[in-house]
Design a protein around this nucleic acid. Structure first.
Lengths: 388, 388
DNA sequence: CTGTTAGCGCCTTCAT
DNA sequence: ATGAAGGCGCTAACAG
């Protein structure tokens, strides 16, 4: 602390008589120089055998190796990074690690990043949980920039505010300028204002998937379809909703000019979780008791919708059909099994991982869109015949 | 946005006197010295205002702040860590990010680690996905040691092999010796050979939970109970199985001395995933067609069991009762809702996070056990009356 | 309060 | 093939 300072107040001081929280013995770690001394060579030589990027005599190398083993030497990543101006950290930003949607992507990205890692080599995939908060997203980007990360993968929907987009773009531009590879996964491509090279993007066909899903419902005969959407400001939310509306727009719903207003009335926004689905379903039933189908913005929400319907004594799909989005693993296991739109999350994640590692050339135009597939299962069926 | 930042939509504009941004990835980053020059002070002063741990005159501070903003300066974490011998990385090792069990824990740990992060401060939670592989676990520990991580949280079951345990213990000992805080979460406490201080541990009462679960089944009248276990060598697997057997041991099963062999025959080992549950259920039915209940090692496995039973035309719980473990979010939503054992994963994760941040004193004895709670739901019921 | 001076541990030219 | 020396960017004693 500083001279005359009064800073001692903040330091967590262990109570008298009690041992400190943790053994604070800062035993000095063994360094390159220690190894060099032990092996009877210069530290430069040790560095060379460690990195294997420069010829070293066989005998010397052996001696160094032994010294390293005997001393349990572990390189100091910080020092190495500082000297070599490279880092072995790769950041993976996700909205919610607890959500399988992101878990599956992150898992695939991570596998790709660790792939082919030699003992001693290999990048460290850093999964950062933003909780969907724009501020946290920026904070993590700063943290990663501070660590001079080798790469960054941004997954999941983007918050669509001009301010936030600008802030993210600025961060990413700087990161890219300093050599960090940027990859977007499941998020719309970014356009750089100054004509700079936009990051490689693995996009999901949310719009198309949503459209086909609603078309499926329409073709079954449904006309009064509720939609449980996500938070308004997110790109994924918007795209899925647009797909849904696009399908409705070309349908023969007998509502004429009021069609749009009707669709609007049957749309409820929520968060991407189960509780929000539950509440939204009840709200939709209130707005339109004649409802025959509900489309949810994702599978988790759909589960909440199902719960609400059951609590209302309505059967699925007898009284109301329900559909989700993403095809998370549990979706095939609930009963009735959920009709949904499958996104090849693992494949997309693997692709993003390869891109950020530079093991895959960026797609032409910078954007690769992975397709979606309609999975028709037990939760959707033709509406009950009504004798209006 | 930065204080004093320009308009939201403006691209980062190179400052006069500085070379323009080039897409050439050799852009030299702004350093402390640059900021110091710009502000007309020494770099030490800049460092002081940045870290706020030393008094600096108000005017000077302001000038420095402005220079930082104008130059878009971001500290180099590597250099700082090297000089200060501290890192802001905290590793969180999980078996599988795609599994909500780990996702929930990781999410809570991470939230705790980021808690109270000032803009510019804050530790970076690094979620590392081991995939359950012992080698990957060791690799990550090495990587984290290399980065001189501030802390490490190990979550999930441990592989119970003397060799691996020794290897992990060695790594952890060294990490702890160099000042890294170690916390175990959902994994049995570690005993240090040399009397060193074992890491703080947040343990789950797997044994007790499993016992109560099987007792519940027994009290319903079940006697022929199949058990779908996890991989043999994992601690969690063993504990849950032990709890199950303990309950059986005191039951009035009319099988006499053969009881143990019978229990053995009705136990199938698998991996902790859905497919394994599916296969195991079929195998159990083959071994004992008179089965009236199946206990799964976790909820995901239970889902597979349910699917298999349904495919066999058996109703749940009419023909066979099914129970799981963990009480993951989806468990209440499948139908019938799953009887299971709830582990307060978020609470446990938060605790682990506090411990690793030094915000919570280690529990007496180093081990805090979080309780489990039996959640009786629709998937279990008395067995159908049989006219043997 | 502020500047000066040493390193932190490693990599990387240069010599040899 | 190896060693010596300088520096990566920052913090932390010491003076003033």
């Amino acid at each position: 602390m500083w001279p005359g300072g009064r800073g001692a107040v903040t330091a967590p001081v262990p109570l008298a008589g009690h041992p400190p929280l943790q053994e604070d013995r800062t035993e000095m770690a063994v360094t390159l120089a220690d190894v060099a001394a032990r092996a009877g060579v210069s530290s430069a030589t040790v560095s060379r055998v460690l990195n294997g990027n420069y010829p070293v005599a066989g005998g010397t190398r052996e001696r160094v190796r032994r010294a390293v083993a005997e001393l349990d030497y572990v390189v100091n990543g910080q020092a190495r990074a500082l000297a070599a101006a490279t880092s072995d950290l790769v950041g993976v930003l996700v909205n919610d690690v607890a959500d399988p949607f992101f878990g599956l992507i992150a898992s695939a990205v991570q596998a790709e990043i660790s792939a082919g890692a030699e003992p001693g080599g290999g990048k460290l995939a850093v999964v950062c949980n933003t909780g969907g908060s724009p501020e946290a997203e920026l904070t993590y980007l700063t943290l990663l920039e501070r660590q001079r990360a080798a790469g960054v993968v941004l997954t999941g929907s983007a918050v669509e505010s001009a301010e936030h987009t600008a802030a993210v773009t600025a961060r990413l531009t700087r990161l890219a300028a300093s050599g960090t590879r940027i990859v977007l996964c499941g998020r719309p491509p970014l356009t750089l204002p100054d004509g700079g090279i936009a990051p490689a993007t693995v996009a999901f066909d949310n719009r198309g998937g949503a459209r086909r899903l609603t078309e499926h419902l329409l073709s079954l005969g449904h006309r009064r379809i509720g939609y449980v959407s996500g938070p308004v400001e997110r790109s994924t939310t918007r795209h899925r909703l647009e797909g849904h509306r696009a399908a409705l727009a070309v349908s023969d719903r007998p509502l004429g000019p009021d069609a749009e207003a009707y669709a609007e009335r049957l749309t409820v926004h929520g968060t991407y979780d189960r509780a929000s689905g539950y509440d939204a379903a009840l709200e939709l039933l209130r707005r339109e008791p004649e409802l025959t189908a509900i489309v949810a913005a994702n599978d988790t929400v759909a589960l909440g919708v199902c719960a609400a319907l059951r609590d209302r004594g309505l059967s699925i799909p007898g009284d109301v059909s329900v559909a989700g989005f993403d095809d998370l693993p549990f979706s095939a296991d609930v009963s009735p099994a959920l009709t949904t739109v499958r996104i090849p999350l693992q494949e997309a994640g693997a692709r993003a991982g390869k891109l950020v590692m530079g093991r895959l050339a960026p797609p032409p135009g910078g954007v690769a869109t992975v397709g979606t597939e309609l999975m028709v299962r037990g939760s959707t069926a033709p509406p009950a015949v009504r004798t209006a």
